[in-house]
């Protein structure tokens, strides 16, 4: 592979708006959006649990849609508006999902929690989950090894205004 082996590909300038703040970054193309957030923007609230799209801990909202940030390259997201867990609270006031997760004890270790909450925020926008089974199914891309699932569902229902 000659020089390709020894010399890392050139960095590419990209622009991201993360939680309303504009950032310009020079990144090697192999940097995922997840690593860009964690390692280049010091936003470690977004978690790396598997790095292969198998756990959902890295879920963020890109242009309002929930995605796994570990399976997309930062350069592919040039110009995108990204919301991470750090951007959900408004001036210190918790997002209703964040408060609901505390109220219902919807986590233990907390590591999957940012991904769960961002995923739930995406779910609310999608408006496709109408009952408990639909919430469970549409939240199944977020693993929780502590097993807080029933509390996660209850927290989401609280945020939806359901009893």
């Amino acid at each position: 592979m000659g020089d390709v082996t020894h010399q890392i590909s050139e960095r590419i300038p990209i622009h991201l708006v993360v939680n309303g703040v504009s950032h310009t970054l020079d990144l090697v193309p192999w940097t995922t959006l997840l690593d860009a957030l964690r390692d280049h923007l010091a936003l470690s609230g977004t978690k790396k649990g598997c790095d292969h799209g198998q756990c959902g801990a890295c879920t963020v909202l890109v242009d309002g849609r929930r995605i796994n940030s570990c399976l997309t390259l930062a350069v592919m997201n040039d110009g995108a508006k990204i919301t991470t867990i750090e951007g959900l609270a408004n001036d210190g006031a918790l997002h209703p999902l964040q408060q609901a997760f505390i109220d219902h004890d919807a986590f233990q270790c907390g590591y999957c929690t940012p991904g769960q909450i961002c995923s739930a925020a995406g779910l609310l926008v999608e408006g496709r989950a109408k009952d408990t089974d639909e919430i469970r199914e549409l939240m199944s891309g977020n693993l929780c090894r502590c097993g807080a699932y029933p509390n996660i569902v209850a927290a989401i229902q609280q945020a939806m205004g359901q009893p």
Binding site: G53, G56, T59, R65, R66, I67, N68, L71, T72, S119, G122, L123, E126, L138, M139, S140, G141, N142
Partner: peptide
């Protein structure tokens, strides 16, 4: 198939 996040991507 997959998850809501992956289907979005």
């Amino acid at each position: 198939g997959a998850s809501a996040q992956l289907r979005n991507m």
